[in-house]
Simulated assay, not measured.
Amino acid sequence: MDTAVSSTGARARTRRAILDAGTAVLAQNPTASLADVAAAAGVGRTTVHRYFAERSDLVDAIGMDVLDKIGAATDRARPDDGPALTALERICQEYFELGESLAIIFDESMAATWNWESWEEDTEADRALARLVDRGREEGTLDGRLDTDWIVQVLWSLLYVAWQRNRGGDTKHNALSLCLYTLRKSVGAPS
């Protein structure tokens, strides 16, 4: 095996381990240090510093990683398939599974530490979600009295409540079931 390929693969795995550990640790404790992240990743502090010189570098990388995860989750949900309300429920389920990754985004104490200009720009996932909502309003499966931005904000708000409920001890299944039920009732077309 080529040592350069092996080294690149090892570096990618180490970086992934640090990002995953950083996400888990910061979701539980937004003031956690790089030493805390290193311990959770099973690497030394100097290894973390080799990949992310400052805590802010790690936080920025987590932000970009979350955007990538949202994009992949949106693709997995197949927003163009089937009735829009059903597709919106699939997106909700996929986003709910991102739990810890997105919990960081909603933590106000973290907001002061990130520099995520990319979050201010519409991504392809944002555009796909907006197209889905527009389609649902046009086809009549989503309430046409609610504008697209409102429905998108309701989705994210419900996800936040569901994650908080799950973190508070409710089962994932129950928190997601309540989220989906409320989504259907709040944005679905009136019967």
Rank of each mutant, 00 (worst) to 15 (best):
184 R>D: 07
40 A>V: 06
104 I>W: 02
57 D>I: 01
11 R>M: 12
124 E>N: 00
73 A>E: 02
99 G>H: 12
53 A>M: 01
14 T>M: 07
143 D>R: 14
169 G>L: 00
131 R>V: 08
36 D>M: 06
8 T>G: 05
107 D>G: 10
152 V>G: 10
186 S>T: 15
9 G>Y: 01
72 A>F: 02
67 L>R: 13
30 P>S: 13
69 K>M: 15
34 L>A: 12
9 G>A: 14
88 L>R: 11
148 T>S: 12
182 T>V: 11
176 L>F: 01
16 R>S: 13
137 R>S: 09
66 V>Q: 03
155 L>W: 04
110 M>R: 11
119 W>G: 13
84 A>N: 11
152 V>S: 12
154 V>T: 14
164 Q>N: 13
28 Q>I: 05
39 A>Q: 14
126 D>K: 09
163 W>N: 05
49 H>Y: 14
152 V>M: 06
9 G>K: 03
91 I>T: 11
44 G>D: 00
158 L>I: 10
181 Y>E: 14
14 T>C: 11
77 A>R: 07
115 N>G: 06
105 I>L: 14
46 T>W: 01
123 T>L: 10
187 V>C: 00
47 T>A: 13
141 T>A: 09
105 I>M: 14
179 C>R: 01
150 W>P: 02
151 I>F: 02
172 K>F: 10
173 H>I: 08
34 L>P: 03
168 G>V: 03
125 A>Q: 00
139 E>A: 08
66 V>D: 02
148 T>I: 11
160 Y>P: 00
97 E>P: 01
135 R>S: 12
70 I>W: 00
102 L>D: 02
138 E>I: 13
92 C>E: 02
117 E>A: 14
93 Q>L: 01
93 Q>A: 15
67 L>V: 14
86 T>K: 08
86 T>C: 05
36 D>V: 10
179 C>T: 11
108 E>H: 11
67 L>F: 03
71 G>T: 05
100 E>N: 04
189 A>I: 07
32 A>L: 06
185 K>G: 04
95 Y>Q: 11
181 Y>I: 05
184 R>N: 02
171 T>H: 00
47 T>S: 14
12 A>D: 00
95 Y>C: 03
82 G>E: 12
165 R>T: 14
10 A>T: 13
106 F>A: 15
33 S>I: 03
145 R>L: 01
106 F>C: 07
184 R>V: 05
151 I>T: 15
70 I>R: 11
140 G>P: 13
20 D>R: 13
3 T>V: 10
176 L>A: 10
82 G>T: 12
132 L>G: 09
182 T>K: 08
140 G>M: 09
184 R>W: 10
113 T>E: 15
58 L>F: 05
15 R>V: 07
91 I>V: 15
